[in-house]
């Protein structure tokens, strides 16, 4: 009786494991294809819900796009073929990671530029403070304000 009880609890726990909630249960014929399939479905945006990847979205359009990815991979297409196919129809917006182009370069450049500005400011403040150390013991803020 106890054993039966424990088993049934285990079965319930198993049934409730995340696997049973997976939106996408597609199995590709080989592990290599499965890996590429999972990679692509996680980097393509579900155009209907927009902040979800097609791998995670339960809407039917996402299922159609996953089917398209699976079919193209099974037909021997490369990952880039799949990306290009999607971009040709839905635009760059379908890629969570937009390609570097003249139009999108600022997306990639801005963090670097901001980092450089931050570094320049940090260097300037450090230098100013370093220059002050020998001369007086007043709080640094006072000196900056009066300079």
């Amino acid at each position: 009786m106890t054993r039966y009880f424990v088993t049934s609890i285990l079965v319930c726990l198993l049934a409730a494991s995340p696997v049973s909630y997976a939106v996408d249960t597609t199995q590709m014929p080989t592990p290599e294809l499965q890996k590429r399939y999972l990679g692509l479905t996680h980097e393509l945006r579900c155009m209907q819900c927009q902040n979800e990847a097609i791998a995670d979205s339960p809407v039917s359009l996402a299922a159609d796009l996953r089917r398209q990815v699976a079919e193209m991979l099974n037909a021997g297409k490369s990952d880039d073929d799949v990306r290009n196919y999607m971009v040709a129809r839905y635009g760059n917006f379908i890629l969570f990671r937009p390609p570097v182009s003249a139009k999108t370069i600022w997306v990639w450049a801005t963090p670097g530029i901001l980092l450089l500005i931050g570094a320049a400011v940090a260097v300037r403040i450090t230098k100013q403070r370093a220059a002050l150390v020998d001369q007086d013991n007043e709080p640094v803020e006072e000196d900056i304000r009066s300079s």
């Binding site: 155009m47 209907q48 159609d64 398209q68 129809r89 635009g91």
Partner: peptide, 12 residues
């Protein structure tokens, strides 16, 4: 089956 819509970039 929604194949034409995908080919036309339809999303809603």
């Amino acid at each position: 089956d929604g194949r034409i819509a995908v080919d036309w970039g339809v999303y809603g």
